[in-house]
Design a binder for these strands. Sequence first.
DNA 1: GAGTGGTCTAGACCACGCG
DNA 2: GCGTGGTCTAGACCACTCG
Lengths: 238, 238
Amino acid sequence: MSLYQKIAKQLRQKIEDGNYQPGEALPRQAALASEYNTSRVTIQKALDVLFNDNLIIRKQGSGTFVSPTYSSALDIISSQYGGTTQLFSGKADVSTKVLHFEIRLPTNEESKKLNISTTVPVYDIYRLRMLDHEPYELTQSIMPLSVISNLTKEIAEHSIFSFIQNDLKMTIGSAVRHISADKASADDIAYLDCLKEDPILQITQTVSLKDGRIFEYAHTRHRYDKGSIVVFNKVPLS
Amino acid sequence: MSLYQKIAKQLRQKIEDGNYQPGEALPRQAALASEYNTSRVTIQKALDVLFNDNLIIRKQGSGTFVSPTYSSALDIISSQYGGTTQLFSGKADVSTKVLHFEIRLPTNEESKKLNISTTVPVYDIYRLRMLDHEPYELTQSIMPLSVISNLTKEIAEHSIFSFIQNDLKMTIGSAVRHISADKASADDIAYLDCLKEDPILQITQTVSLKDGRIFEYAHTRHRYDKGSIVVFNKVPLS
DNA sequence: GAGTGGTCTAGACCACGCG
DNA sequence: GCGTGGTCTAGACCACTCG
């Protein structure tokens, strides 16, 4: 871990521990540079990390302050993308039932979304996730074999994301998600145990690795009364 | 506008114009530094901007490449937060009907979400937005007078966001949103012209200025068949 | 081993805010 | 005017990828 990352981590810890209160000013950059025995530029890179997580506010001509709303920032950080299994680990009992598992060629739409040729085979995995033994979400994942391989039904029953990160040693880069509401389908009623008139929260996502290759195109359908999406948006600088 | 921002803007334009194709390598940082007659650090700051918008991929030891999925990145950038009026300006005819406009004291929940005391008055504005003369969304906005003042019903009929940015000269910093699905309420049926069994896409948002003060706590309800939310997530660096 | 991006420095000047 | 963060430099070394 690089120096600016270590400093960011330590400053974050200090804020979370309450050494600096919401709204309170942090030491000036020059003071931090002395304290950590480094240059001001490195301190600024460390502050960039905290700023992007909304933990601090920077005022030119005035100072650097702990964000008055930093407690809600913590919620956001902890809800960053890492798959359902990771998100709830320790908080609830997550179990997964694999309803369908096959390798086939992609449809035109799928090949387009995955940015692959229609001749590259894909996994088509349909899973029901349960939270504390209650139906929670229904997900269809399409993943290209050119990116992910050696996937098995057993792995799909646990966490595909931890398999990718821990076993394949690949790093996830970014995700684009479209969120909408929809009426319940026959599958929703059957698997999510909801009623015909219950709304569904639907998420369509495309997830990329750090090197830019797309590894998942997925549709997830949630019961409307279980869970919601939390999103944090910084306004563009440009 | 600072040098790195200008360079970022020019590089972005070159990518959008197709001077560099998706997947293609950009010139090395040293070459860009010579070309723009600046230092490598400044080039890196410019590349940071494009990287955060998912327009480029950086591979240590290899090079900087145009993101293979950069076209979807463009969608995201253009859907950044700026209020409904701004989002659709030029694309569709947006009109707003103010259903309710009052100044009152906040409830406990509102004062908590806005991070103000219960003695600070707030605007309570309830508006129906129409897109091309069709009902689109129903929004209740709560805004503290300690942050925003001189709001009128006339301003609310146009764009509150442009009033804040252009007239009050304040800069928006970030927004936290919770997105969920819900059943239609009596108001939804009456104003959004939807049916009792139609689902609703609900967004609860807290929007802050650049200095960290929260200026809006709002609930927005969308017709499920009109529009969805697009979200872009970079995975945390730490 | 050659070439790339990532990190870091020490110092300088600029832009902004506030009293 | 003074103190703060923002930008920028020229050069150095490290870490990683790939042939």
